[in-house]
Every structure is written in C-alpha cells, then in structure tokens.
Design a protein around this nucleic acid. Sequence first.
DNA 1: TCTGGGGTCCTAGGACCC
DNA 2: TCTGGGGTCCTAGGACCC
Length: 341
Amino acid sequence: MDTHLDLDQFIAAVELLRHPELRGIPVVVGGSGDPTQPRTVAATATYEAREHGIHSGMPLRTALRRCPEAVFLPSDPPAYEAASERVMAVLREFPIAVEVWGWDEAFLGATTDNPEALAADLQHAVRARTHLDCSIGIGDNKHQAKLASAFAKPAGIHRLTSDNWAETMNERPTDALWGIGARISKKLAALGLHTVAQLATADPADLARHFGPTNGPWYRYLALGKGEAEVVTTPWIARGHSRETTFQHDLTDRADLAYHVTTLAEQVTQDAREAGREITRVTVKVRTTPFLTRTRQSTLPAPTTDPATITRTALTILDRHDLTRPVRLLGVAVDYTMPDQ
DNA sequence: TCTGGGGTCCTAGGACCC
DNA sequence: TCTGGGGTCCTAGGACCC
C-alpha cells in the first residue's frame, strides 16, 4: 500500500507560524515582498487572499490591485527548507519507506492492515512536532495515492485504489490525472477523448501516433489508474542544474547580457563543484519580448568543473542567439555526468 | 493576470558512420 | 553516381511537475 503525504498550504502555514498575528487576514508570499515590483509572482496565497481571487503564480501587482489590504511577505526558501526537513525527520521515525517529493510532499511505503490508522498517527505526529497540517492519500500505487491526497484536503485522509478508481475518476476530465496537463488534455479532447473513462478505452496505437511511442500509451495507462508503486528511498541524483534571472527591465546592451551570462555561468559552476559533480553540456536560455523563449546548447569535449571553460562556452553560445530583441530573462543550465557511465 | 525559478523526461530531425 | 538501412549522438523545443 502506498500513501502520499501533502502538507496543507505549506509555505503559507510556515509563514503564519512565524507571524501568528496575520491569521485570518489575506497574506500573499512572493519575491522580496514588494507588491509593486514588476515580473514577480506569488509563491502562495492564504485562504483569505484566495477569496479575493489571488492564487499562486499571479503577478504581485495584480494581487495588490485585487486586494490592497493584503499583507505581502518575502519568499524565504531556507525557512521552508528547514521546516520541510523537520517534517521529513518525523516521518522517518516511523517504520516506513519515505520518498521525499519536493518541500511539501512525500510518498510513504508501508505494510499494514490499517493504512488509515497509520495515516492518522502520521498526521498527529507531524502536527505535534511541527504544528503543520497535512493531508494523506492512500492508494495501490503512487499515482493513486497522489490523487487521493488532493481529495483528502484539508487535513484529511482519503483512499483511492483500483476498487473505487472507476467510480471516482471515470467522469473527470483527463487533466485530473497526474501527468496530464492543460495542453495534452486539450489535444486529447480534440480527438474526442474528454474523460478519464474515454482515455482508458482509447486505442494505444492511436495514442502512440499522436503523442509518441512512450507518451501515448502511458496516458492510457494513467487513465486506468495504474502507476509506479515502488517507494524509492535512495537519494536522488540530479541530472543537471540551472540558474536563471528575469530582469525587472529588459536588457538590450550586449555587454550587459555578457556580464549576466558570465555571472550565471560562474554560479552554476560553483554549484556543480559544491555538489561534487562534473559538467558535460551547457545550455543558454534567452527570453525576449514578447515572451519568446529560445535555448542553444553545446556538449563539451570532455566533462569539466573549470569555471573559465564553462563561462567561455556560455558566452559563445550566447552569441549564437538572435539578440536583436530586448531580453527579459537569461539562464544558464548544465548537465552532469551520471555515475556508472 | 504581461506572465518566477528549478527541475525531469520525451520527441523529432539532422549529422555522421558503417 | 541515381542511393539502403540502421545505430548513435546531438540539438531544440515541448510538456509536465513542484
């Protein structure tokens, strides 16, 4: 039996623990906390802020317009990281497998006759030790458990297994599945596949023709409620790493672009060194007005952690971009060598 | 609603080689 | 030279997720 644990309103909850006086009023977290700053979006919004139509991903300036009396707090990733680690430590004290999935989620593998009782124990322990609420989903695999935890919100427990999959999911739109978003859902709808039930009975060869040999059949697999069941506890080895910056005002001067690419390349190389990883490929991302994103990349002749090599490569790649339009974002990404290669 | 930052995986097409 | 077929690597972009 797999379970998925999802902390409720994680970032907002951590902030409200630090600022109890803000309970009950609209709070928006994001950027440096200055809602007049352009090109900054909300990381999260409290329930009270949501009632004003504010949601995560919304530009802070829009949020401010919708709710001028809202309190805006800066995003504080180290604080969320620390809170997350406290929660994961509580989970690891249980005789269960823990697969950390971002800051505020974890998959848990357990052998038990009574998963609801285990889930309640976990909720009580997390609440007692961290003052944070979580929702827990129970399923036959991680996909089912993940969807179940959403049904469990707030602070509840829900079971979604193959026994009640069809009755729960069949009439829902395809983007209710974990792994199908708005784009694929729209393409599926254009093929007459609107619901999970319709996708589940679609022809796999048909899907493969439209979505590729891996993705097509996989979508049908998701619609049948199937998915990976193994909870992996071994630490994740990152495939790569990146840093990017959106500028509050567009850049047009090539010297400015070169300066920022150099800084990003140096940061990324330093990150790689600290992680003890070697770089095999460099990608430079450029987003111009009107929100057009392009990437250029180059594979290195040999893996390296030499800052000069990475910087030089990044600058050469930058010159392969069309830089005739104002630039709003620059990014440098690298791929790492993987062990056993 | 003028639209963040950091990831992962898949696909299609071209280059190149045998 | 009118040109087969397969394998592999590389690049650029798309889609999804937290």
